[in-house]
Design a protein around this nucleic acid. Structure first.
Lengths: 204, 204
DNA sequence: TAACCTAGAGAACGCACGTTCTCCACGCCA
DNA sequence: TGGCGTGGAGAACGTGCGTTCTCTAGGTTA
């Protein structure tokens, strides 16, 4: 088996096991068994468990945000897109294997001891925040491309600051919905967060 | 040293160490050293590490909610009380030793493997939710005692349901503020959540 | 005073797990 | 065909840690 497919299989196994049961509860030997990759190759691809965890988080970040963005753009236009984020969250919470935010879980497990993991989590959350800001910008300028939006934002610093503030509030709502759903085990927090977002958008 | 003071010292040491560095990163021997309690006595008070963790969470729950309630009632009256929750959060986030929500951290570490820990976390979150609902009820009926409020709530099921929905939204905001503050390391999410809460209260 | 119970200190045990090492089989090149 | 390098399987190693055991000292009671 070559290095490329080994890496893919390892990340697949890592994602499935780490997300379902937690990082510390899964040993490297179990990753090996689930992936079908030899231990020697495993340590060639990822010289330590920490690096495997970081790899798992980085790839999950890409896929997670891809899935969100795809769902939002195909499902809604304009101001509705922000609300579509919470609809997507509700679907995610309703999936059988939902176990909360992989990044928060990993942060709770390793954030205090592993700076690399903490950085991966921070990066993910920053990207989500950026995405929400983008959605609001596109909402305000539905007919312009990204470049034009940024020019406009520069020209109107006050509006940009307000968008940024709103994006922060939406981010807090999304974050809270994820953790509350994880702990209570129900998808309802997505609905509550959506209702709150709706109110914030309506009355800003 | 008698059992009572031993238990207190153990919980003190456990809270300090577990909260600062995580449960898994702290060994029982370190708890023993920090508390000055012998290992034998430790296992008399808490027959397993899991039970020590649960004890730590239960006592922290009491203290945390006491501190919140005390701050809210001394600082504000009526509708302002809900916003005072977020002011208290901001102060908490600004403390030097802030490391996020002890319950979420423990849930991320042990929730998947320890039902007892998961239950303690769920109980804490449910209590907070209840507290927020209480605040909203007292807000609407500032001059009546609890019993009267409940009678009123029964008589007006629609209003009670709306209060409950609002409480859920506030809960999501608080939860999101805590996790975002923990990951970004800044107290700003408390301000964002407060602004959102203000908007929700104003336009309901 | 002598037997006995308790408590503390710390060694010891067992296990899990991250990481490395050893051995062997298989394919490639002279 | 015969050496040789690569890769896989799994044993082995070291360590950390939850838990238990042992030994000793001191206090209490008959």
């Amino acid at each position: 088996m070559d290095q490329r497919t080994a890496t893919t299989r390892l990340l697949d196994a890592a994602e499935e096991l780490f997300y379902a049961r937690g990082v510390q509860a899964v040993g490297m030997d179990e990753i090996r068994a689930a992936s079908g990759v030899s231990l020697k190759r495993l340590y060639q691809c990822f010289p330590s468990k920490e690096q495997l965890v970081v790899g798992y988080l980085r790839r999950r970040d890409e896929r997670w945000r891809d899935s969100l963005a795809r769902s939002v753009t195909t499902r809604a236009r304009g101001a509705e897109q922000v609300l579509a984020v919470f609809d997507w969250l509700h679907e995610w919470f309703s999936e059988p294997g939902f176990h909360g935010c992989a990044f928060l879980n990993s942060f709770g497990e390793l954030g205090a001891t592993s700076p690399a993991v903490a950085a991966a989590v921070r990066d993910h959350k920053a990207e989500v925040q950026r995405y929400l800001t983008t959605l609001l910008t596109d909402t305000d300028e539905p007919r312009t491309d990204r470049k034009a939006s940024e020019r406009k934002a520069l020209a109107e610093p006050k509006a940009a600051a307000e968008r940024e503030a709103l994006a922060e509030q939406l981010n807090v709502l999304a974050e809270g919905a994820i953790t509350t759903a994880a702990i209570t085990g129900t998808p309802a927090p997505a609905r509550h967060a959506r209702a709150a977002a709706e109110a914030l958008l309506a009355h800003r």
